[in-house]
Design a protein around this nucleic acid. Structure first.
Lengths: 255, 255
DNA sequence: ACAATAGTGTCTCTCAGACAGTATTAT
DNA sequence: ATAATACTGTCTGAGAGACACTATTGT
C-alpha cells in the first residue's frame, strides 16, 4: 500500500530537467595494490591532460553515465583497461567530495581498493595516460608527487589495508594461484611492517579453513613446502581476534 | 620537484567548461539511528515532492556546491536541520551509484550513518518534507515503504551497525549524558538481538577505560546503580576480540 | 522476608604469543 | 655433518563465556 501517486510522478518526470542544478564532477579512483619484489606496490598512471598533466595519479576516471551501469562497474572497467585482468578483490573504500580537491571546482570521487597478484599482468597505459607503472609504497607513501589529493588517499587506504590485515584473510588475494604458508606469511608481514610468530600464523590460517593443499610442493627453498590454494568459496575470512601489531591504530573517525 | 606545468594548467582551467559532460546527480543520505522505548529507531522524512512524493525516506538531499564545502558538511547540515542537534557520531557508510535507483536517471548517493541519543531532540520537518518521525527498525526493516533504494540501504546499514557493535564502543553514542552499565548493556543487546553475559560485559566496558563514574547514582530501579559518563576523549574504542553473537555475519563483499 | 536489580569471584574455553623441538632438503 | 627452511608440540597469557555468589534497595 504505497502512498506513491504514479500518474502525478510520471508527469513530473516528463517535465524534469536534469541540468537545472549545478552538479559536482563525479569520478572513481582505485588504489590497486600488488606485491612485487617483497614490497607493497601501487599502480599509478601518468596523466596526459591538465590539470596535473604529467603528474602520477591513481587509476581512475569519470563516471560515464551512458556506458557504466554502476560505480563499481566504472572501477572495474578502468582497472581491466590498465591491467588486462579481473581483480580477485575490489572493495569500496571511501568517497571524498569537496570544492578544493580539484582546481576545476566541486568534485567527488569514490575510492575503491583492489588487491591483485602481480603475475600475468602486462600494463597498458591506453588513452588518458602517457605512462603507467607500479610504485613501491612505504609508510603509505610513494616517491613520486601525486595529482589532486591522491597522496592522502593512498595514505589512508594503506592504513585501512594494514588494519584489515589484522583480522582478515585479505592478503590471500595478493598471492599467485599456488603459494606456501611461508610466502603468505611474508606478505602479511610486509603489509603490517612487523614479524608474526610463525606457529600462530599457521594455526590461524589453517584453522580458517579457506585454504586447501594443492597436492604439489614448492622446491624453491631447502626443505620442500606444501603449496596451498584458495578454496572455491572465495569470500574473505574474518577472524574473531586481532593479531597484535606494533603501533596498530584504530580506524580514524572524525565528526 | 613536480612535473606540473603551472602556466599551461592555468590556461587550461581558464578554458575549462564544467558543463561539457553529463554528470550524475549527487546526493547525501544519512541513516540516523536512535534508541527509543527499548528499540532501535531510524529517522525518516515524508517527501514533499516527486518522485516518490509522500513516501518516507532517509534524511538527505542534494549537495549544494555553493553552500557545502564537503560531503560531510552536507550530511551534518541536513541532520541538524531535522533534529536541531549536533550528532555525537557520524560515519561514512557507503556510496551507491547506478542508473536505476532514481527514475530521473543516473544518481549517486553517499550514505552516512549517525548515532544520536533521543533526548533533547525536537523534530522539525522543514522544507522538502511534509512530515518527519522516528520509526522502529526490526530486522533491518521498517513498516513503511521507503523511497528509492532506501529500504536496502537501511538493511545494509543496520547490518553494519550490528557488526561494528561486536567489536566497538559505538552504542555509547546512543546514550544520554549519564547512564548505568545496565542501560548500556540493554542497548548493546537490542542492537545485537541477543543477550550478553553481564559479567563479561562489565569487564569489557570498564577495561576499555572510556567511561568514568559521574559521582551520581541512578535510583530508577531496586538497587541504586552507578551513573557513568563518556570520558573527554570521545573516540570510539576498538576491542581486540569480538563478542560472540548468534548468527553473526561477515561484512559483505562482492566483486 | 522476599523479589529485583547491581555488582563480584572465579572457573573454563578459545586463541594468540613464545619458544623449543623435529623433519627434510641442499650443500 | 651442517645449515637452512618447513613444520609440530606445548606452555603461557589475555580476554570472553558461564554461573554462583554477595550487596542494596523497594515492596
Amino acid at each position: 500500500m504505497s502512498s506513491r501517486n504514479k500518474e502525478a510522478e510520471a508527469a513530473f518526470l516528463e517535465a524534469y530537467d536534469a541540468s537545472a542544478f549545478e552538479r559536482p564532477s563525479t569520478a572513481v579512483d582505485t588504489v590497486i595494490f600488488t606485491v612485487l619484489h617483497d614490497a607493497l606496490h601501487v599502480l599509478l598512471v601518468q596523466r596526459a591532460e591538465h590539470p596535473y598533466k604529467d603528474c602520477w595519479s591513481l587509476v581512475g576516471g569519470y563516471v560515464d553515465i551512458h556506458r557504466d551501469r554502476t560505480l563499481k562497474e566504472t572501477a572495474k572497467r578502468k582497472l581491466e583497461e590498465k591491467t588486462g585482468v579481473k581483480t580477485p578483490y575490489l572493495e569500496q573504500f571511501e568517497t571524498i567530495g569537496n570544492k578544493e580537491r580539484d582546481p576545476r571546482g566541486w568534485s567527488i570521487t569514490t575510492v575503491y581498493f583492489a588487491l591483485i597478484p602481480s603475475q600475468d599482468i602486462t600494463l597498458r597505459s591506453g588513452k588518458g595516460a602517457v605512462d603507467i607503472k607500479w610504485l613501491k609504497v612505504e609508510g603509505g607513501q610513494v616517491t613520486e608527487e601525486l595529482a589532486f589529493d591522491h597522496a592522502e588517499i593512498l595514505q589512508r587506504c594503506t592504513e585501512r589495508l594494514r588494519n584489515k590485515v589484522l583480522y582478515t584473510s585479505l592478503p590471500v588475494y595478493l598471492m599467485p594461484k599456488l603459494f606456501t604458508l611461508g610466502e603468505l606469511q611474508k606478505v602479511y608481514e610486509l603489509i603490517l611492517g612487523s614479524p608474526i610468530e610463525h606457529k600462530s600464523f599457521r594455526r590461524r590460517m589453517l584453522g580458517a579453513e579457506i585454504l586447501e593443499e594443492s597436492g604439489e610442493m614448492s622446491y624453491s627453498s631447502k626443505r620442500p613446502a606444501i603449496l596451498y590454494q584458495l578454496k572455491k568459496s572465495q569470500d574473505p575470512y574474518f577472524f574473531v581476534r586481532n593479531l597484535e601489531a606494533a603501533g596498530k591504530s584504530a580506524a580514524g573517525v572524525d565528526v
